[in-house]
Amino acid sequence: MSAVRLVRSATLTPDVDYAYAATVSGPLRAVWTAGACPLDEKGATVAAGDVAGQAEQVMRNLRTALADAGASLADIVKTTVYVASPRQEDLVAAWDVVRAHMGDHDAPSTLLGVAALGYDDQLVEVEAVAVVAD
């Protein structure tokens, strides 16, 4: 049983594909991830120029970081998705990949277009907060 409960609003629009809030309960352990980046096992940025391709690698890396900390995507209470682009369609392309990986667990998230990210050719980064029952 997950310690995370996603909260929907009866007042805010239901036409969004994420929960508006999340709560946690019980004896818990919090996990904060660094921003997952589109890097391969050698530290090279993958899929230069391809927002969706980078988002795929980012989500694989996020899964790994969470697993190494004893958590999974289903334990996430909040994500922040960064896309180095002023174009809304690029933000949506990254978001679509993130949502596909999250499945039915539509945790609260913030999606941002930013001027630049830290690695050469990097377009996407996702950070997460997860909570697991101890």
Rank of each mutant, 00 (worst) to 15 (best):
residue 86 P to F: 10
residue 54 Q to S: 07
residue 70 G to R: 01
residue 59 M to F: 02
residue 82 Y to T: 01
residue 59 M to A: 04
residue 49 G to R: 09
residue 73 L to Y: 03
residue 36 A to C: 08
residue 90 D to Y: 11
residue 68 D to Q: 13
residue 78 K to S: 05
residue 46 V to F: 08
residue 76 I to C: 08
residue 53 G to S: 03
residue 32 W to K: 04
residue 30 A to P: 05
residue 35 G to P: 15
residue 50 D to E: 07
residue 30 A to C: 09
residue 39 L to P: 01
residue 65 A to K: 13
residue 30 A to G: 12
residue 65 A to R: 12
residue 59 M to I: 10
residue 41 E to V: 14
residue 80 T to K: 15
residue 68 D to W: 02
residue 67 A to G: 08
residue 52 A to K: 06
residue 61 N to A: 06
residue 42 K to W: 14
residue 43 G to M: 10
residue 67 A to V: 05
residue 29 R to E: 10
residue 69 A to H: 10
residue 47 A to Y: 01
residue 67 A to N: 06
residue 62 L to K: 01
residue 84 A to T: 04
residue 44 A to Y: 06
residue 58 V to Y: 00
residue 87 R to Y: 11
residue 82 Y to S: 06
residue 33 T to Y: 04
residue 56 E to L: 09
residue 67 A to P: 00
residue 48 A to E: 09
residue 90 D to F: 14
residue 54 Q to V: 08
residue 38 P to T: 09
residue 33 T to R: 04
residue 74 A to Y: 05
residue 44 A to V: 08
residue 85 S to R: 05
residue 30 A to N: 00
residue 37 C to E: 13
residue 86 P to G: 09
residue 79 T to P: 00
residue 40 D to H: 08
residue 70 G to F: 13
residue 67 A to K: 13
residue 57 Q to H: 01
residue 59 M to R: 04
residue 85 S to M: 06
residue 80 T to N: 14
residue 43 G to Y: 12
residue 78 K to M: 10
